[in-house]
Design a binder for these strands. Structure first.
Lengths: 153, 153
DNA sequence: TGTTAAGTTTAGTAAATATTGAACTTAATG
DNA sequence: CATTAAGTTCAATATTTACTAAACTTAACA
């Protein structure tokens, strides 16, 4: 893969991950870190590769770090920080997903609480939503367990 | 549930669903349709309840319809259109999820294709991402199957 | 301890997105 | 048919969000 292709890939990755809710720049960084050589890159490297400002690289690497996609490493005799994609970067996505589902779950629960003494017919709409999200949440958790198992074997 | 509570609920719902990627107004409409009485509402009803413009109600109900959250019904001797939440509104969310995952999947595949003749060590990062998403995708599909089964029983 | 490099934070700006309001289309009813 | 109501579309505006550039902080090294 040529350097130019990598940059192109980072751009596409940025666009694709925008839909996922992270900024385009964070997506570009992540895409770049997936294909770059070497796999660890300094903020300056990222700046050059992606033609972005220092500030933007800083905020977005922090965000990727917080979301568990990327980790920060240091090298002996080197003042700089390097970033690389985390080994278990992807299962974090599902963790995030579970948290989001919990929030929806809370929405339905709060609604149902306020309908305590209304007829089932009136509560049905929220009840259905509640049941579905409860199902999904449980399934996602076992799914992740399966994944962890398949990795350790 | 008092009318005022319902409006309040719609507002909270709008905020919560914003994170999910739909507009705040679409979220408000959905939230309102989950608790309103009767369960079907005309655009005018929605306008009054949510204090929104005709245009915004129109665009957002269409969006909710397209996303399969809401359906349009008509009543005899009534010129207006009514909206109500669809019975299977929620499983659609997962369907959307599967489609999104497919896109990420495509991203990884295209990357790996461009790395055809590079050492495994270099491809590893993308390969891991690929494997994970493949796993999730399969699991989600069977999960939805379980859900469908649990409903028909 | 002064100088420089690395990284963070923040104010300002640019870009994107949602909402309104008004013009337009379509169809129902007197 | 003419009039009115219902709904859609679109241009303008308001709001939000991302990015840059510059100021600031921290720490390494001469």
């Amino acid at each position: 893969m040529k350097q130019k292709q990598r940059k192109q890939y980072a751009e596409e990755f940025g666009l694709a991950f925008e839909q996922f809710g992270i900024t385009r720049m964070a997506g570009r960084i992540l895409g770049w870190l997936l294909v770059c050589e070497p796999p660890h890159q300094s903020p300056q490297d990222l700046q050059d590769a992606l033609q972005a400002s220092k500030g933007s690289i800083s905020t977005n690497t922090r965000m990727l770090e917080r979301l568990n996609f990327v980790e920060r490493i240091s090298l002996p005799g080197d003042r700089r920080t390097y970033f690389q994609v985390k080994a278990d970067a992807w299962s974090g996505i599902m963790q995030t997903e579970v948290v989001a589902l919990e929030q929806f779950q809370n929405m339905t629960r709060r609604g149902l609480e306020q309908m305590d003494n209304e007829p089932e017919e009136q509560r049905r709409r929220l009840q259905e939503m509640h049941d579905f999200f409860q199902f999904i949440q449980k399934e996602l958790v076992t799914m992740m367990k399966h994944w962890e198992e398949s990795k350790t074997i």
